[in-house]
């Protein structure tokens, strides 16, 4: 989580206009999910992985690890999709008898599961691209520009900012406790952790009060108005992002995207 945040500020696409990156990631998401044959999301996966690793310069080892995390969740969910239960055992590629029922895999189920798998991977690769190349602050700016409700944006910004303060506080309390053997045994660890959490609540409350005072000192009157810097969009970057976006859309149309929605069970 924190690594993703660091990469978001230190990748080769840092200077690219966030709206462009949102556009590309959104297209990847759409193309993967909007009823295309399995080939299309696979193509998306390849293109977006290439963009993230090759273009943005995220180390491939780290990228693979992230994909593996996503894959882990998917694999856990897939049996529910692939497994069939029914009174008849014929037509199953593999099955077991449970009482009067048969539980097993048939061809359609496996196909459905694999299709779902590549769809999800394609979509995830789009989101990873966005998460690894675009800082949260810039995403918030894009959302602000498209008219996202201000209150939610303020909350997101505050949560994001103070998440790090909270982690730091928790970290230093933990070290201070561990230094006095607070985590030497299970019992003590539980007690220390409980203390840590309760202290954290109190500190968070104090911090909120201090923040309110500090904001008031700068003329806070109910809304956190801020102004972002202006982006100098480079035409080269915009063109590259545009080409990728159009490429994804074209491949979607060519592989029969959209039409597949009706054709698929």
């Amino acid at each position: 989580m924190l690594h993703i945040d660091r990469y978001a500020y230190r990748n080769r696409l840092y200077g690219v206009h966030p709206a462009d990156k949102v556009c590309l990631a959104g297209t990847a998401l759409f193309v993967s999910l909007a009823g295309a044959p399995p080939l299309t999301p696979l193509l998306v996966l390849v293109v977006m992985a290439g963009a993230t690793v090759g273009w943005a310069g995220i180390p491939w080892r780290y990228y693979l690890r992230l994909v593996a995390v996503g894959l882990g969740f998917l694999v856990l969910g897939l049996p529910a999709v692939a497994l069939q239960a029914g009174p008849a055992g014929d037509g199953l590629l593999w099955g077991v008898r449970v009482g009067t029922f048969f539980l097993g895999l048939d061809r359609a189920g496996v196909e459905r599961a694999l299709h779902l798998l590549v769809k999800c991977l394609g979509a995830v690769s789009g989101l990873y691209f966005l998460a690894l190349t675009t800082p949260v602050t810039e995403l918030l700016r894009v959302l602000r520009r498209v008219g996202f409700p201000g209150l939610l944006l303020e909350l997101m910004d505050l949560v994001y900012r103070y998440l790090f303060v909270l982690l730091e506080t928790a970290g230093s309390i933990y070290v201070a406790q561990a230094a006095r053997d607070g985590y030497a045994s299970w019992g003590r660890a539980f007690r220390s952790l409980g203390l840590l959490v309760s202290v954290l609540f109190v500190r968070a409350h104090h911090r909120a009060l201090a923040l309110f005072t500090a904001l008031s000192a700068r003329g806070y009157n109910g809304s956190l108005e801020v102004v972002g810097p202006e982006y100098l969009s480079s035409w080269k970057n915009r063109l590259a992002v545009g080409c990728l976006t159009v490429g994804l859309l074209v491949s979607w149309v060519l592989t029969g995207g959209g039409a597949h929605v009706r054709g698929h069970p």
Binding site: P135, T137, D157, R161, L211, T213, L224, V226, G228
Partner: peptide
């Protein structure tokens, strides 16, 4: 307790 925003510029 003063810096509320994740972006320095903002």
């Amino acid at each position: 307790s003063q810096l509320f925003c994740a972006s320095v510029f903002e």
